[in-house]
Structure formats: C-alpha cells, structure tokens
C-alpha cells in the first residue's frame, strides 16, 4: 500500500485547518470504505488522510420538532438500527439495507457516501427527493447547501478545499407523503445499482399534490426527472399517469454502457423502476 500520513484531529476547526494547509494531496477519511479499496487498486493516491472520526458530535440521528439531523459519520447500520429513523423516516433504513453488506455498513458513513459523489451512491436519490440539505464547515465558517446542488460530476462534490460535511438535514415529510426507492441489481447484496429510482409523492383527496423523482447511476450525477415529476403532479396517479412518467424519464437520463448494463437496458429498467417505486409510494401515502 502507498505511504501516506495519517492525521487524527480532535476538533472540526483543527481538521479543516489541516486540510487547508496540507493542500490537494490531503483527503478527509471517514469510514474508509471508498478510500481504502480505491487506494489499493491504485485509483487514488492520497498523501495525507485526515481521520475525522475522533471529532465528537458528528454521529447519530436526532429529531428536533420536524427536523431530522443526521451526523456525517453516522454509519448505514446506525441508520438501520436507529429508533428515530424507524419511527420517523423508515424509508432511510430501507434504503440503507440495499447498500453493501452488514460488515461494510458498520463502517460506511452517510457523509462518505455523499462526498464520494459516485453517480450510483444509493443514499443520494432518496435524500434529494426529501429535499435534504448539507451542513458544511470550513475555516471560513459554516454554510448550507441543498443536496440537489451538491453533485458536480462523478467524484466531484461541491466542496472547496478544507470543507467538511458535518450533518445532513431534512424535514420529516407530511403524513400525506409516501416514498420508495427501487434499486435494480442482479444480486441481493454487495451490488452497485444498475439504476436506482427514488420517488416521493404527496397524494391526498385523489390528487397528487407534489412529486419528486430522482434517478441514480444513469448520468454523471443523480438526475432530478422534472418532466416525469410534472406528469405525476396534478394527476390521480393512475396506471396511465405512471406509464406516462415512466416514458418521460427515459429521455431525462443519460446512461452509459458498462459492465453492469447497456445504456438502452438502463433506460428500460429505469422506466420500470419508476413505475414500481411510484406504485409502492402511492400505497404509503397517508400511512
């Protein structure tokens, strides 16, 4: 393995100052489940790893009123076994269960999943659908960024040098909102999404008041399928409405051919996943 220096700051300020000072060869190190295999496979060449796990206050899920705060260091198993998640936003646990394996989920953090900015990152579509924002800290202070605006390209999060994501913030959806995530994969676990569709529908009185459709693994970043959304919005979410949205989503993504599937296959599966996710989401509205 490549030689690098390992830093273990105790405060956020210390960590972001370090990152600023050490320059472009330095990286934040959280669970390491993206960094370690990629370093081993020589796709990544860090000179400095800045471990943020010794900094207190960056882990766990809290609820205050209608706001849920998820620390960047919260692991996917923390989410799966969190009472706050299971009683307020069980969809997050459901999505977490589609990720990697039990052991990897004990290490992999939600902050790492987002900051790695893989097009296939499974936590991104549902969090965008729920309107999540990130709290970001740097030597210059704090800022907030909508997750929808966070991805600039594969491996390129909207972060400047020295910036550290500290929390994911989201509102508990209204009871009339139903969500679902459909990850298409061949194996049951340890599988990267061929396509992943998150749907959030606000449905009451026989009419869809709001709709969010986000597709992962089918473009350089997660894609918000606005046309599909507008076809669902205002409709009764009948079979024909879902079919129309599924048809639209094909043109809103720009998938590539790779070992996991051809572009054409991805378009077809995305349309199907959208339909299935919407069917599940509708059933969950008002529950």
């Amino acid at each position: 393995m490549r030689h690098f220096e390992f830093h273990q700051p105790r405060t956020l300020k210390e960590a972001s100052n370090l990152l600023g000072r050490l320059g472009p060869g330095a990286m934040v190190y959280a669970g390491g489940t993206d960094i370690i295999p990629r370093t081993r496979l020589k796709r990544l060449h860090p000179d400095h790893l800045v471990n943020i796990k010794r900094i207190p206050g960056l882990s766990g899920v809290q609820r205050k009123g209608n706001t849920l705060t998820i620390g960047a260091l919260t692991t996917f198993n923390d989410i799966i076994f969190s009472d706050v998640v299971n009683s307020n936003l069980p969809i997050l646990a459901e999505v977490a269960r589609t990720i990697a394996s039990h052991q990897v989920r004990n290490l992999a953090t939600i902050g790492g999943n987002l900051c790695n900015a893989a097009p296939s990152a499974d936590s991104a579509p549902i969090l965008i659908a729920l309107g999540a924002a990130l709290s970001v800290c740097s030597p210059r202070g704090k800022r907030r960024v909508l997750l929808e605006d966070f991805f600039k390209g594969p491996g390129r999060p909207n972060l400047k040098r020295g910036e550290i994501v500290t929390h994911v913030l989201l509102k508990k959806p209204r009871p009339t909102v139903g969500c679902a995530y459909m990850k298409h994969k061949i194996r049951q676990s340890l599988e990267i999404a061929i396509t992943g569709v998150a749907v959030a529908l606000d449905f009451a009185g026989g009419e869809c008041r709001d709709a969010r459709v986000i597709v992962g693994a089918c473009a350089p970043t997660p894609v918000r399928a606005r046309q599909a959304e507008s076809l669902l919005k205002g409709s009764a979410l009948g079979a024909q409405d879902l079919a129309a949205a599924a048809d639209a989503v094909r043109k809103e993504i720009s998938p590539i051919d790779d070992v996991r599937g051809s572009a054409e296959y991805r378009r077809e599966m995305t349309a199907l996943c959208l339909k299935r996710a919407a069917e599940i989401a509708v059933r969950r509205c008002g529950k």
Binding site: Y29, G32, N77
Partner: peptide, 13 residues
C-alpha cells in the same frame, strides 16, 4: 463488538 472487514480498516484507525 461490531463486525467489520479488517481489510478495509487501517490499523492506525
């Protein structure tokens, strides 16, 4: 107490 892949964990960590 938590199962982890020891190939993904830095010894220092």
């Amino acid at each position: 107490g938590k199962a982890v892949n020891s190939c993904l964990v830095l010894a220092l960590d």
